[in-house]
Design a protein around this nucleic acid. Structure first.
Length: 374
DNA sequence: TGCTCCCGCCAACTT
DNA sequence: AAGTTGGCGGGAGCA
């Protein structure tokens, strides 16, 4: 049975459950499947078969993951797996790109601007693009595309580019929270065309679900407008960060669906599952289910992209003190293995900052958690 | 009832 | 020409 196949219910039939099919869950399962030692390539057909979904959905996941550096296209149907360790570097590049493009912004403005930027100008929302940083545009990133070509147009609207731009909004601004409306207006098509905007918002939901399943962002509600918003967790994901709990954000433990944050493969009945929802198997951590309301092994999950435990190095959680030591060593090995060799002092400092933050967070978690669990 | 977002059509693109 | 990729929007699930 594939990972996403619905189980038979008591009467032998299978009940359709939308959550089982969510991109967020698919992403978690995808990472659970491939995020381990020895994985070098990912075949799209293989992934689709093993995850029990059609290829189309794999494209969605892969495009978003490629944007954050987890994998890179190698050949037709094949991706090279870089792993979660490549994420910090990818984020740094996005951040750098965002700021760099912001510097070039004047030049961009004088010429043709991307639809994103154009959108920004016609948009009535309050945040200027200069404050929000620039967004990627194929006009700048590729000279090989003829201006106005179908290819360029298609590329401009790609899910991958959209993902990068979405992340840049968080990385290159002071605010760590974006309302759904603002994000859509900044990132997506013609704000004066409701139809186009609606379409683009759908894509934003797709991206947000994947990113939230990886704990890059979380869905919240704006404290004033109560409108849905996304909050960036990736760069400030440890408890020491004041931004995590002291922003005054109204954390609504959403009674609404939170696609992408669910790791539930199983849903016996549509709705009504609610609090009694049973997590049969947490693929993300490769661990048995945790009852709702308890913390146990999962108490510290969900703190940024690092939190997506590598099944190989972290799956032995809950095994006691010796594993805590092993995990620390694993993490240190991981950090040293993936430590970028920055020649840029600023980047080096930034990386050191992240490492310190991570160590600080980890040691705090280790102290809080007597059973050696992340 | 509006928000959310899965699904699959089909056009663009690649081999 | 056949296969791959992925934009797009209809419409169903859900609160």
């Amino acid at each position: 049975m594939s990972l996403l196949s619905p189980p038979p219910s008591a009467d032998g039939s299978t009940t359709y459950c939308r959550k089982q099919k969510s991109l967020g869950l698919l992403c978690s399962n995808f990472l659970g499947l491939y995020n381990r030692d020895g994985i070098e390539t990912v075949g799209l057909d293989d992934a689709a078969t093993r995850l029990g979904v059609e290829r189309r959905r794999i494209y969605d996941i892969v495009n978003v993951l490629e944007s954050v550096g987890v994998l890179v296209k190698k050949a037709k149907n094949t991706y090279h797996w870089l792993g979660l360790g490549a994420i910090p570097k990818a984020l740094e590049q996005l951040k750098e790109e965002g700021f760099r493009n912001n510097d070039e912004h004047v030049d961009v403005k004088s010429g043709k601007v991307s639809d994103d930027e154009e959108d920004e100008r016609v948009s009535s929302h309050s945040v200027s693009l200069h404050e929000k940083s620039d967004l990627d545009s194929t006009h700048k990133t590729s000279g090989s595309f003829k201006s106005g070509s179908v290819t360029e147009n298609r590329k401009e609207k790609s899910l991958g580019l959209l993902t990068k731009n979405f992340i840049k909004l968080f990385l290159c601004t002071n605010s760590d929270m974006l309302s759904l409306d603002d994000a859509a207006k900044i990132l997506l098509g013609d704000a004066q065309n409701p139809s186009l905007t609606r379409t683009k918002v759908r894509r934003l939901y797709d991206i947000a679900n994947v990113l939230s399943s990886m704990n890059f962002i979380e869905k919240i509600h704006h404290p004033e407008t109560r409108k849905p918003a996304f909050r960036w967790l990736g760069m400030a994901s440890h408890p020491n960060s004041q931004t995590r709990s002291a922003t005054g954000v109204a954390h609504i433990e959403s009674k609404k669906r939170a696609f992408g944050t669910e790791l539930t493969n199983i849903c016996f009945k549509r709705s009504k599952v609610g609090d009694q929802e049973v997590k049969l198997f947490d693929l993300q951590s490769q661990r048995p289910p945790i009852k709702p309301g308890t913390h146990g092994c999962n108490s510290n999950q969900g703190l940024g992209p690092f939190s997506h435990s590598d099944p190989v190095t972290l799956s032995k959680s809950c095994d006691g003190e010796s594993n805590k030591v092993n995990k620390t060593q694993d993490l240190e090995n991981l950090a040293s293995n993936y430590r970028p060799k920055y020649h840029n002092q600023a980047l080096r400092d930034l990386f050191v900052h992240y490492m310190d933050a991570w160590k600080s967070w980890y040691s705090e978690v280790a102290e809080m958690d007597p059973v050696g669990v992340i």
